[in-house]
Design a protein around this nucleic acid. Sequence first.
DNA 1: CCCACGACCTGTGGGC
DNA 2: TGCCCACAGGTCGTGG
Length: 287
Amino acid sequence: MPELPEVETVRGGLAPVLEGQRLARVEARRPDLRFPLPDNFVQELTGARILKLERRAKYLLARLDREDTLVMHLGMSGRFEIARPAGEARPGNFHYAPTPDPKHAHVLFETEAGDRVTYYDPRRFGYMALVNTATFDLHPWFAGLGPEPLSQAFDAARLQHAFAGRKQGPKTLLLDQRIVAGLGNIYVCEALHRARISPFRAAGRISRSRLERLAVAVRAVLLEAIAAGGSTLRDYAQADGALGYFQHSFRVYDREGRPCPHAGCPGVIARRLQAGRSTFYCPVCQK
DNA sequence: CCCACGACCTGTGGGC
DNA sequence: TGCCCACAGGTCGTGG
């Protein structure tokens, strides 16, 4: 489920455990995730200190006291769990007591302090890589990324420019990480509903005032989701339930057949496949 | 450029 | 209960 709010939540949870710590032990329990892990993966990381844990789009970035940055993408089903040494108190803001799932525990990090961070990923759409920090912005994964939706670089003008002349719906274009980085299926559906814009309307024909609404809606839904600790579904469910309440706030996503939550709207939430992915929307109030 | 579709990989939930 | 299919948060590539 990792879209921007989930990755940001994970970042916030891992940071107190990893930042400033040296990795005492690293274990790759299989040679590949979505892509092969670099040959020197374990060697490069063992003994490295994580200076800072950052996020760009849906990527987690561990800045190291070495030439490279550890880049991690959670794909569809990637998640992290932290285990502390027996008897120690839990630092706040993260999830513990995982259901044992040794089959999908693919990468282990152990810090000097003894915390163990395990990466689980049943579907293995996630990946990890080492990317040279000095030339980071030139790397193909990052060179073409659009602005962060929570930064000042993202606004209606940016959308207008990106949408100009395009016949695809805004749903499809907002999923394009080159236009804006970090949105996924859930939050695009939610933002379009809040802005009352049809996912199917030709993007180039959406008025400026509607694009203003859309930019505001994107920002609002992401901020609310981050404040709620992201959304917890399926693989991502955490044992102690400490995180991830935003799924209770979905207005359209996975709510086919339920009434439209907009006051006074008689619509019923519909689901339609768009570019092979489910789009949830209200056919009545989203124009 | 647009779109439809399939691929990657595994698990789960719903329908019968 | 059991089986089979549809579908799942994300990308990436192909071909018309």
